[in-house]
Design a protein around this nucleic acid. Structure first.
Lengths: 235, 235
DNA sequence: GAGTGGTCTAGACCACCAG
DNA sequence: TGGTGGTCTAGACCACTCA
């Protein structure tokens, strides 16, 4: 049964068919696809329908599109892994465990040089420095150390961080436009070992994040997880 | 100047305006947005234009959309970090370093139980087991250990893996539909320490990936990076 | 200059689901 | 069962870029 004889052809069908033809080698990697107009004719649908299908395939990394040049099968399909940035409370609740938060340290002082550099602020501006713990069923889950640029978030000074984690306060109160995340493996130092109930040198998973609003850094945070923590995603 | 008086309002402008209103609290979290029809009237554009803007904001996690219920601002905006899955050769070249690949071990044998379980295949089916190294400027960069389900990729038996990394061969020859990635921090064992030119116990960043084609596992791979490796992304 | 994708329109019908 | 978003259409004009 040809496409032209079908009642209705949707963009999802077109996506599937394109993927299928690429997989089968009908449209080899690097080759040029027919124009939207031609495909619309073949599939018996409007060009907008083909456009949506191809646009989504381009976002997804299977093809490259350029005006005038046309649509080409990418030599190496771009592949992305999308990790959801969860609130640690949610992560723990999703595990079916009880969540507990504890503020360990809070101070306001001029930024040390390396923090000033990390926050892209001039040295000696005021920053709030926070250390806190997140527990799952009363066992250490994550140690969080954070610096907040007070100039950009002055209201943080009035936040009740004894009972609410800084992350949750910030999410509720401060929108952000950009963020950078870095993942790494580090060895526990004495402090981390103590908080995370392990021994110094133990390999730990760490997530660092810097967030900006309109070019201004809001906060830099380091979250270090208990031993054997993993991050998983499907794509 | 009101929107209705503008010459043309595009979906990007609408996206920006919606984001802005949510940030400003005009549409608080949890609140219901006007219907597409109403917004189209306010912005002086077609409903399809509003639809595209809201659809993309929903994908991006700012709002939830349901038929009949309407469009709602998410209480906690979903945030995702998108990491590009690179070919290690590309990663190294992007660093401006020379890339070198070396095959360390290759064998074909019945799958050990844990591998069979990982590959979701019946025990004792044949698998190819590969160990290889990737170097940047002749210094150890990544140790790769991989198991390939021969039943799903029989042609791997004829691949020249002495000169081409299994990943590059697979990418070129075998499409895949799904993948699962796990990130973790591990301590170097004696073998890893030797290959990655470090000492046992050193914290190392590890990426594991299983890929499927139509429900059949193709391969499971563990890539362990040299000390101090990081993965970074912006969003 | 001309061909391609990018976007928009005005209208239509459909699918889902809360009341 | 009515209101909402989901999708499609047929056409149009625009923007980019290759030759």
């Amino acid at each position: 049964m040809t496409y032209a004889s079908k009642k209705k052809v949707g963009f999802l069908e077109i996506k599937q068919e394109v993927i299928s033809r690429v997989h089968k080698g009908i449209w080899p990697t690097g080759s040029l696809l027919p124009t939207e107009k031609d495909l619309a004719q073949e599939f018996g649908c409007a060009r907008a329908t083909v456009n949506r299908a191809l646009r989504e395939l381009a976002e997804q990394g299977l093809v490259d599109r350029k005006r005038k040049s046309g649509t080409r099968v990418r030599t190496i399909p771009a592949r992305y892994a999308k990790f959801e940035i969860e609130i640690v409370r949610q992560t723990i609740k999703d595990m079916g465990a009880d969540y507990r938060y504890a503020l360990v340290h809070k101070s306001v002082s001029p930024a040390p040089d390396w923090v000033a550099s990390q926050l892209a602020m001039s040295a000696q501006q005021q920053v709030m420095h926070i250390k806190c713990m997140h527990y799952a069923d009363n066992r250490a889950f994550q140690f969080e150390e954070r610096w907040i640029n007070i100039a950009t978030v002055p209201r943080i000074l009035e936040a009740d961080l004894d009972h609410q984690s800084p992350n949750e306060w910030l999410i509720a109160e401060v929108p952000f436009s950009d963020a950078e995340i870095t993942l790494s493996a580090i060895g526990a130092d004495v402090t981390l070992a103590e908080f995370l109930d392990t021994s110094p040198g133990t390999p730990l998973f760490r997530l660092e994040r810097t967030t900006w609003l309109d070019g201004q850094v809001i906060t830099y945070v380091r979250m270090t997880y208990r031993p054997n923590h993993t991050m998983t995603t499907q794509y």
